Amino acid sequence: MKKTILENRMKHIFCTVETPKKSNAKYNYEPESGGFVLAKYLPLGSVFPYDFGFIPGTVGEDGAPLDVIIISEQGTFPGCILKCKVIGAIKAVQQSKDGVQVENDRFLVVPEASSIFGNIHRVAQLSDTVLDELQHFFINYNKQEGKDFQPLKILSAKDACKTIEKAKSNCQPIKKIEVFIPLYDKEGNRFSDHLYQSVSKQLIKNFGGITAYIRSPAVGIWENSDGMQIKDDHVIYEIMVSEIDHSYWKQFKKKLELQFAQKELIIRQSEIGLI
């Protein structure tokens, strides 16, 4: 049952377009500049057959986000983000000029908004012409750069989703979430340990692991309207993630405020770097 839920969730992902369909220019997203940089022009008469981009929050064997081909009747623009359905992938290896060979798959997706391709759920539903066109395009595209691109086989939607999930786990967490929960209620009574155990279990289930500062609680000091200083002991739960689902955290915060009878709890986020 859990496996089925995971597969269904993974079949729909967000993709970022770098180079639009029918473009003669190749664009690359540059995180440092925060924009899309013109990388090169293709030879005259050569254009991208479909929108080409990447899957955010993934790291492939070459150290870059996974490449994605967005099969649709319309082209978009650099930076466009599309919710897409995974239908398969072209498994391939790429050899550079210096002979280094890495896995460099091309994942095949269809935008949810597509009216012509919306009924396609697996790569087998695509015509052989589309697959041949895509494979020949990337073979020739890499050949122009002195690289050897070798398609190996076509992956099913299920296998493509597994590969994407693995690439997501390879992506280093870059954001830290901290959840502050008080130890005592308004009357000074300590909350039940069962409540904290419940919070820990839910966060571990959803994110795979946490750091909980329970035995050495943080002490918060604040001043009320009468000018009196009040101390608050808090348990802090720390989670590292690559992407923040704001809707999830808003709902989680409301749930905790009800459980611990608090007018407002603090959940904060911050950027971090790993060594």
Rank of each mutant, 00 (worst) to 15 (best):
L152F: 01
E32D: 12
L82T: 02
H246V: 14
E187L: 05
E264R: 15
L134K: 15
G79R: 12
I71E: 12
N170D: 11
F14E: 05
P20R: 03
I244T: 10
N8S: 03
P182E: 03
G53T: 10
I204L: 12
K166C: 09
K143V: 01
M240R: 06
G63P: 00
N189D: 06
L108G: 02
K21M: 15
A212S: 07
K254G: 00
A124N: 14
M1K: 05
P173R: 13
K85H: 07
K231D: 09
Q95Y: 03
D62T: 01
L195R: 11
E187Q: 08
N140S: 09
P20T: 00
H136Q: 15
I236M: 05
Y248I: 13
I266V: 15
I210E: 02
S198C: 02
N206W: 06
I55H: 08
G209S: 14
V235E: 02
T129W: 10
I174R: 13
D193N: 06
S46D: 02
G99R: 14
N189V: 13
Q172W: 07
S23C: 10
C161G: 10
I266Y: 11
N140G: 01
A64V: 04
I71M: 06
F77A: 09
E7I: 04
I55K: 02
G146H: 14
S192E: 14
A157T: 04
V130T: 15
Q125W: 11
V68F: 04
F207K: 12
M240C: 02
D132P: 00
K147N: 13
Q95E: 14
K143E: 09
Y184K: 15
N8H: 07
N8Q: 06
I87R: 12
G88L: 02
G208M: 07
S198W: 09
I5G: 00
L108N: 03
Y196I: 10
V199M: 13
